Amino acid sequence: MKTKRFKRVYNEGAMAVSEIFVDQETGVNYFFHSNGNAGGLTPLLDKEGKVVVTEIADTSF
């Protein structure tokens, strides 16, 4: 069985939805926000503007 590449690690909202996904191959975190039929996806950044990367072993939760 092949593991899914992206794992949702955070979710909030019903009409306006905010989610964070982790790429299980690279560890890069992505922020997704949608409201109605509009949405956007971007890499999640820390306070220094660097891409948030989760160690792959940490995505097994």
Results as ranks from 00 to 15, higher is better:
residue 18 S to R: 14
residue 19 E to F: 03
residue 58 D to K: 09
residue 12 E to G: 00
residue 35 N to Q: 05
residue 37 N to R: 15
residue 50 K to M: 12
residue 32 F to N: 05
residue 9 V to L: 15
residue 42 T to Q: 10
residue 51 V to M: 10
residue 16 A to D: 07
residue 33 H to A: 10
residue 14 A to N: 13
residue 9 V to M: 14
residue 20 I to V: 15
residue 37 N to S: 14
residue 29 N to E: 15
residue 4 K to N: 12
residue 2 K to M: 03
residue 3 T to K: 14
residue 48 E to Y: 13
residue 51 V to D: 11
residue 14 A to E: 15
residue 38 A to H: 07
residue 14 A to D: 12
residue 6 F to G: 04
residue 22 V to M: 03
residue 7 K to I: 06
residue 26 T to Y: 01
residue 60 S to A: 11
residue 60 S to E: 15
residue 60 S to Q: 14
residue 11 N to A: 08
residue 58 D to S: 07
residue 23 D to L: 01
residue 12 E to W: 00
residue 11 N to D: 11
residue 21 F to G: 03
residue 7 K to Q: 14
residue 60 S to P: 01
residue 54 T to N: 03
residue 15 M to K: 08
residue 21 F to N: 08
residue 59 T to E: 10
residue 26 T to G: 03
residue 10 Y to H: 14
residue 19 E to A: 08
residue 32 F to P: 00
residue 23 D to T: 06
residue 17 V to S: 02
residue 2 K to D: 13
residue 42 T to D: 09
residue 6 F to E: 03
residue 20 I to S: 01
residue 35 N to K: 05
residue 6 F to V: 00
residue 12 E to I: 06
residue 36 G to S: 09
residue 50 K to I: 04
residue 45 L to I: 07
residue 57 A to G: 02
residue 61 F to L: 06
residue 34 S to E: 05
residue 29 N to F: 13
residue 29 N to G: 07
residue 48 E to M: 13
residue 50 K to C: 06
residue 55 E to P: 13
residue 22 V to H: 01
residue 44 L to A: 13
residue 30 Y to E: 05
residue 25 E to Y: 12
residue 61 F to H: 08
residue 43 P to H: 06
residue 21 F to R: 03
residue 54 T to C: 01
residue 55 E to A: 14
residue 40 G to V: 11
residue 1 M to F: 15
residue 11 N to Q: 14
residue 7 K to S: 12
residue 5 R to A: 02
residue 40 G to M: 07
residue 35 N to R: 10
residue 32 F to D: 07
residue 16 A to L: 07
residue 20 I to M: 04
residue 30 Y to K: 03
residue 41 L to C: 10
residue 56 I to L: 13
residue 13 G to A: 02
residue 3 T to A: 09
